[in-house]
């Protein structure tokens, strides 16, 4: 849910920052993109809760675990890319620059999401697991 914090910061940034004398928050494209991230975070949150509920109820579900990983990876990637687009040239600044925005959190996420995506199994590995355990398909590897 560190990503939720980044979303909140991006929302505040959009309200305060101006482009062509208008707040970024008035730009329909930015509004759509931020709404999309919020939806993806909600989906990831609910699926995390679902996994926890399944564990609490002794339901062994490798499928849900892989699904959580997959959805969270995608949500992080989309947040990082959108956040970098919103910050524009400032997105490239490191945390310790006096000009950096949002404490450099978006730049950090951008550098990190691919690593997190690979850690504990890439998306493709997760999809192989889900095909087998969630859909009952023969092993494809």
């Amino acid at each position: 849910m560190g990503i939720k914090r980044i979303l909140d910061e991006l929302i505040n940034y959009a309200k305060e920052e101006k482009k062509d004398n208008k707040p970024l928050a008035k730009d329909p494209l930015i509004r759509q993109k931020l709404a999309n991230i919020a939806i993806e975070i909600e989906i990831a949150k609910l699926l995390n809760y679902r996994l926890a509920w399944e564990i609490d109820n002794n339901i062994l579900s490798p499928n849900t675990a892989s699904e959580v990983k997959l959805i969270t990876d995608e949500m992080m990637e989309h947040t990082a890319i959108t956040g970098m687009q919103m910050l524009g040239p400032y997105s490239q600044l490191k945390q310790d620059s006096k000009w950096t925005k949002l404490r450099g959190s978006v730049e950090s996420l951008y550098l990190m999401f691919l690593g997190l995506r690979n850690a504990m199994g890439t998306d493709e590995v997760q999809k192989n697991i889900m095909a087998q355990f969630g859909l009952g398909l023969p092993r494809g590897y």
Partner: peptide, 17 residues
């Protein structure tokens, strides 16, 4: 079966997700 090919499996997994 085409379901044994990863390209089909991953499409189906995207659908399930």
């Amino acid at each position: 079966p085409i379901g044994s090919f990863q390209v089909i499996q991953h499409k189906l997994v995207d659908m399930m997700t």
